[in-house]
Amino acid sequence: MRWSEQFVSPSLMGAATYALAISLAVVEAGILAAALLPNVDSDYRAFYIDGTTTCLNRGVSADYSIGEIVSFRRDGAKRAKDFKVCGWSGPAGDGTHSLGESSRLRVRLTNARSPIRATLEIAPVLRPPQDRQRVFFSINGIPTHATTLIGPDIRSVSLDVPDSALVKGPTLELDLSYPDAIPPTRSASAIYKRAIKLTSFRLNFASLGQQIPTGSIPPN
């Protein structure tokens, strides 16, 4: 006779064991159901679950006065840090490299007044035979500009901040997306793709009548 049978009848023991088995099954099914229905925000879902972005939004931002030039080389690393939301690596010696299929900068304007023009100095990352990188810009979700970087030199790219981007407040989110970003190896994850090197960023008040036309999106 087992020790347990000295105190509990076998049928009661069997019933208790069945109850334990059912409890385990119910609890595990409940946890599985909860796991399959995550309670996460849209940024988490987009990056980790759906994989629709390589740029995980973060709550960083820094105050910015119109006219300040922010260096994204090593000399400006400390200042640039809080503008970089996601999709950046570095700075390296030649600037801050984009990482993934899109990047984001965020600035909180201390003296917002339209019209504002953003100017970025960027150079493409190229790997032969690829000789160009397309970059699409949007500000606060509004598609603003598109450019094609050809050749290895640093280029100055300017884009006007749409008035509608400033309606909700003084914070600007500048998204850059790279349809031609280059993966380091054939089977590497998209989060490691490279497209541009950013060396500096600035915002200026644009003179009226000097609005630059929004770039047309080049064909594939």
Binding site: I31, A35, P38, V40, Y48
Partner: peptide, 23 residues
């Protein structure tokens, strides 16, 4: 999984985070 569901909101975070490791 229960711990992750309570703290992160995603019981499968151990798998989903693999994307950030480049897997």
């Amino acid at each position: 999984m229960l711990y992750l569901r309570v703290t992160v909101g995603d019981g499968l975070a151990f798998g989903h985070v693999q994307r950030a490791f480049g897997r």
